[in-house]
Computed example of a mutant assay.
Amino acid sequence: MIIATGSVNIDENAKLAQEAQTNAEESIKESGKKYESMLDGKITQSIFPPNNAGDTNDHQDGDMWIQVDQTGYNGVAQQMYIYSSGSWSVKQWDQQTLNVKKLSALTADLGTVNSGTLNSVEIYAKNLTLDVSSDGGSEDAGHNAVSWSGTVSEGMGVNFNHGLMHMNARHLSNGTYDATYIGPNDFKVRNTMGLAPDSGLNNRVDISDGSVIMNTSWSDESGVKLGMWNNGLVQTNFVKTNYITGRDQSDVYFHDTSGNTIGIHAGDVISHGHTLTSTLSSKRDISDFKTDEALAKINSTNIKRWQYVSDDNSNEHIGPIIDDVNPIGDKKYGLNNDMIKTVGGETGFDQSNALSIAMAAIQELSKRNDELSLRVTQLEMRDSNVK
């Protein structure tokens, strides 16, 4: 038998126990501020959202409602709601909490998606539109470099739609708009010169298979045409250049699309020579031309000294004049129709025919000179016999 001889202070031990309990309760209260317990709430699952399910149950803060795509435990959760302060609200999830390693399939009506960098191997889309400007605008470096700006929200950007590409952007310096269309066999560029991006498509440049068409309306084929046709021939209504060089340093030919030669309209032409096609194989319907008729045509031609309206005072010309002002019968200047030619709607002096008529007239004069020389010789012999 053991008998304790010391004394125990029960009151002091009870006090220590009370202090320990108080500290524990304070610690629990402090930790409770960091989270909210939902152990007393209930979880409801339905194919309907809470406000459309006809729910008559009483709910308290912390209740959870999960909307699924089908009834039963195998339904896929589509939305989560939390009951608070007498109503349901959608539970929001921060994107940083999502860590999805692999999505085998994602089907959703996402609406507007704001994203940073998107890395992808393949993108399939019927319509894809991108902004054309960065923070400071985009610059198309190279010839005539221009800075562009424009966002999708402004009705501009780069748009890919069913295989076609359309770019619409604003010029940062002068505010003009540019639109570029690229299709399977056509490339179109236009400048609206400050008009709205969706205004009339004018001042167009078309680049298609084998040709470049410039300065036309969007729906016609008029205007400047510069392109390559058969045999490398160039057809154009206007070329702004100082030099035209034939392919492989060969001759330059001016033909229509059917291969027929066409006229060239110009001012002064400086060359080493001028050669006319005159082979028998290139001609038909050949007939005689009377030399006395040629002399008559030359004699009826009025040769004058004059200036073109566009000339300055330093330029002066000598030649015939085609009277295109006065009516027939009142013409001031005479020029035979054989020396007048109309090309491309413009009427001018046919130097080729005039040269040939002059040659025939010289032949007539030479013939007459021979006849006169013969008569003079005969008269001189007669006069010598008389003496």
Rank of each mutant, 00 (worst) to 15 (best):
residue 2 I to V: 08
residue 10 I to F: 08
residue 12 E to M: 05
residue 17 A to I: 09
residue 26 E to R: 11
residue 27 S to V: 10
residue 28 I to C: 02
residue 28 I to L: 13
residue 32 G to K: 13
residue 34 K to A: 13
residue 34 K to G: 07
residue 36 E to F: 10
residue 37 S to E: 14
residue 38 M to C: 08
residue 40 D to T: 12
residue 41 G to F: 07
residue 43 I to L: 14
residue 45 Q to N: 08
residue 54 G to Q: 01
residue 55 D to M: 09
residue 58 D to G: 11
residue 59 H to E: 08
residue 60 Q to G: 12
residue 62 G to N: 08
residue 64 M to N: 05
residue 65 W to Q: 05
residue 66 I to S: 03
residue 77 A to P: 14
residue 77 A to H: 04
residue 78 Q to Y: 03
residue 78 Q to F: 05
residue 78 Q to H: 03
residue 79 Q to M: 12
residue 86 G to M: 02
residue 87 S to T: 12
residue 90 V to F: 08
residue 94 D to R: 13
residue 96 Q to K: 15
residue 96 Q to E: 14
residue 99 N to D: 15
residue 99 N to F: 06
residue 102 K to P: 00
residue 105 A to N: 13
residue 117 T to R: 09
residue 119 N to K: 07
residue 120 S to V: 15
residue 122 E to S: 09
residue 123 I to S: 05
residue 126 K to L: 05
residue 128 L to W: 09
residue 131 D to H: 06
residue 131 D to V: 04
residue 131 D to T: 04
residue 132 V to K: 00
residue 133 S to H: 01
residue 134 S to K: 10
residue 136 G to F: 09
residue 143 H to A: 15
residue 144 N to C: 06
residue 146 V to W: 03
residue 147 S to P: 00
residue 148 W to N: 00
residue 149 S to T: 12
residue 156 M to I: 02
residue 157 G to Y: 04
residue 169 A to Y: 06
residue 171 H to R: 09
residue 177 Y to S: 04
residue 181 Y to Q: 05
residue 181 Y to V: 11
residue 188 K to C: 02
residue 194 G to Q: 06
residue 195 L to V: 01
residue 195 L to N: 11
residue 195 L to H: 09
residue 195 L to R: 10
residue 200 G to N: 12
residue 202 N to I: 02
residue 203 N to D: 14
residue 206 D to N: 13
residue 206 D to A: 04
residue 209 D to P: 00
residue 211 S to D: 04
residue 217 S to R: 01
residue 218 W to F: 11
residue 224 V to L: 05
residue 231 N to R: 13
residue 237 N to I: 02
residue 238 F to I: 04
residue 238 F to L: 12
residue 245 T to V: 13
residue 247 R to C: 02
residue 251 D to T: 07
residue 251 D to H: 04
residue 261 T to I: 07
residue 262 I to L: 03
residue 262 I to M: 13
residue 262 I to R: 10
residue 262 I to V: 15
residue 264 I to A: 11
residue 270 I to M: 05
residue 272 H to S: 13
residue 275 T to N: 10
residue 277 T to Q: 08
residue 278 S to F: 07
residue 280 L to C: 02
residue 284 R to M: 08
residue 285 D to F: 11
residue 287 S to C: 03
residue 287 S to P: 00
residue 293 E to W: 03
residue 300 S to V: 04
residue 301 T to I: 02
residue 305 R to G: 08
residue 308 Y to T: 00
residue 308 Y to I: 00
residue 311 D to E: 06
residue 311 D to R: 06
residue 312 D to K: 06
residue 313 N to T: 06
residue 317 H to R: 14
residue 323 D to Y: 03
residue 326 N to G: 01
residue 327 P to R: 04
residue 329 G to Q: 09
residue 331 K to V: 04
residue 331 K to C: 02
residue 333 Y to R: 02
residue 334 G to H: 08
residue 335 L to W: 01
residue 337 N to W: 05
residue 339 M to F: 00
residue 341 K to T: 15
residue 341 K to P: 01
residue 349 F to T: 08
residue 349 F to K: 03
residue 351 Q to A: 14
residue 353 N to Q: 11
residue 353 N to R: 09
residue 356 S to T: 10
residue 357 I to G: 03
residue 358 A to K: 07
residue 359 M to Q: 14
residue 361 A to D: 02
residue 361 A to S: 14
residue 364 E to W: 07
residue 366 S to H: 00
residue 366 S to Y: 00
residue 369 N to A: 11
residue 369 N to P: 00
residue 373 S to F: 08
residue 376 V to A: 14
residue 377 T to S: 15
residue 379 L to Q: 13
residue 382 R to M: 15
residue 383 D to I: 12
residue 386 V to N: 14
